[in-house]
Simulated scan of single mutants.
Amino acid sequence: MIGRVTQRSIALNSLTNLQNAQSRTAKLQEQLSSGKSLSKGSDDSVRAAAALRLNDQIAGNDANTRNIADARAWNTTQEEALTSVADRLSYVRDLAVRAGNATLDDKGRAAIVAEINEAKASILGSANAQYQGRAVFAGTRDTTQAYDPVTYASADNGAAVTRTISPGVDMTVNVNGGAVFGTAPNSLFDELTDLAAAVTANNGTAIGASLVGLDSRISKNATALATIGARDNQLDHAEEVNANQLQYLRTQLDDVEGVDMAKTYVEFNMQNVAYQAALQATAKTIQPTLLDFLR
């Protein structure tokens, strides 16, 4: 039996077709504006799951890149501080050698003591160097001061500050203050105080012992600087690896959810033309009746 085709059924079918055409046009327009073929998981559950995994990996890569930048800042802060310490220690050693001259008078020794104390204050400032308001030579303790300026007590807990710089790779970014400056009462600052006292007393034996101690401190400081240099090289390698990985992940993600802009633009124009033509055809097909005027 053939059903009767009414004006109402024609209108409903035409409206459904128009809505479908409009939906297809809107979807193509969204792809053009976002540059993505997936707007929601239901578009393609398999590709959506793959895109989610890739986005998680990219987020992890971004976090590692930030950690590398943070690790570099730690290295730079410590390197600048320890380079200054190396310069001051070398200067103090020269002063100690001069102080060992038995012919030096009281005025000369007093001048050397003043310079030793000035160098000690400078080294203490370097030992209390900070990054983002945190003492870098205090281990994992969140404090602004690694060494007390009066007692020379150390806040360093000997723990390692680490940063994840690549998947599964954690790097120590701090130098333990105790390894370079020691701890009271046998800290570098105590040794410099003893040296100043030995110079004041014109005690050649004590000055000689201080020279031995200074050489040891200079060696430990050089070792710390070498460690920082090795970490810089490790960061350079990690940065290169992360950059390559990020490029690969973005290429993969584009393959999964990207769109061919030229092809999509042509399809959008064709769909839009078809939609406009459908509107015109529907307007001619559905003619107003007398009932429409009587309502």
Rank of each mutant, 00 (worst) to 15 (best):
225 L>I: 15
144 T>I: 02
205 T>Y: 05
130 Q>S: 00
192 L>P: 08
165 I>T: 12
124 L>R: 11
139 G>N: 07
149 P>F: 00
188 L>A: 09
137 F>G: 02
233 N>A: 14
145 Q>Y: 09
118 E>A: 11
123 I>Q: 01
188 L>I: 14
182 G>A: 04
210 S>Y: 08
194 D>F: 07
136 V>R: 03
118 E>C: 06
123 I>L: 00
140 T>V: 12
214 L>I: 12
142 D>P: 08
162 T>A: 06
201 A>Q: 11
159 A>D: 14
246 L>C: 04
236 D>A: 14
178 G>P: 07
127 A>H: 10
162 T>K: 06
124 L>C: 06
153 A>S: 12
126 S>L: 03
117 N>R: 14
219 S>E: 13
128 N>L: 01
196 A>G: 11
128 N>H: 01
186 N>P: 10
159 A>Q: 15
215 D>L: 06
178 G>K: 11
210 S>K: 05
194 D>E: 15
126 S>Q: 13
208 G>V: 01
151 T>I: 09
239 E>S: 15
241 V>M: 07
230 A>C: 12
135 A>F: 11
236 D>Y: 08
218 I>S: 06
235 L>M: 12
229 G>F: 13
159 A>Y: 12
122 S>M: 14
120 K>S: 04
140 T>M: 04
172 T>K: 04
200 T>G: 00
188 L>G: 02
228 I>W: 02
147 Y>Q: 04
141 R>E: 08
207 I>Q: 13
169 V>H: 09
182 G>L: 01
234 Q>T: 15
168 G>T: 12
177 G>S: 07
201 A>V: 07
130 Q>C: 08
176 N>V: 11
241 V>I: 14
215 D>C: 07
245 Q>A: 14
130 Q>W: 03
197 A>M: 07
126 S>D: 13
238 A>D: 11
177 G>H: 07
146 A>K: 10
232 D>H: 03
239 E>L: 13
198 A>S: 13
120 K>Q: 10
161 V>N: 05
181 F>E: 08
119 A>T: 15
212 V>Q: 11
236 D>S: 14
189 F>T: 08
143 T>K: 05
165 I>K: 06
174 N>F: 01
134 R>W: 06
156 D>M: 05
143 T>E: 00
127 A>M: 05
126 S>P: 09
148 D>L: 07
147 Y>V: 09
168 G>Y: 13
220 K>Y: 08
182 G>K: 00
131 Y>W: 08
210 S>L: 09
158 G>K: 02
193 T>P: 03
170 D>C: 01
168 G>V: 12
167 P>L: 00
226 A>T: 15
141 R>D: 03
130 Q>A: 02
155 A>M: 10
159 A>R: 12
237 H>Y: 15
244 N>R: 12
217 R>W: 03
228 I>R: 04
177 G>I: 06
212 V>R: 10
195 L>V: 11
183 T>G: 05
148 D>H: 10
148 D>Q: 09
186 N>A: 05
167 P>Q: 12
175 V>C: 02
237 H>D: 14
218 I>Y: 03
207 I>P: 03
126 S>E: 11
190 D>C: 01
190 D>H: 13
241 V>N: 00
190 D>I: 03
200 T>P: 06
203 N>S: 08
143 T>L: 01
211 L>T: 03
221 N>L: 04
233 N>Y: 13
137 F>Y: 00
130 Q>N: 12
168 G>E: 13
177 G>L: 07
138 A>V: 04
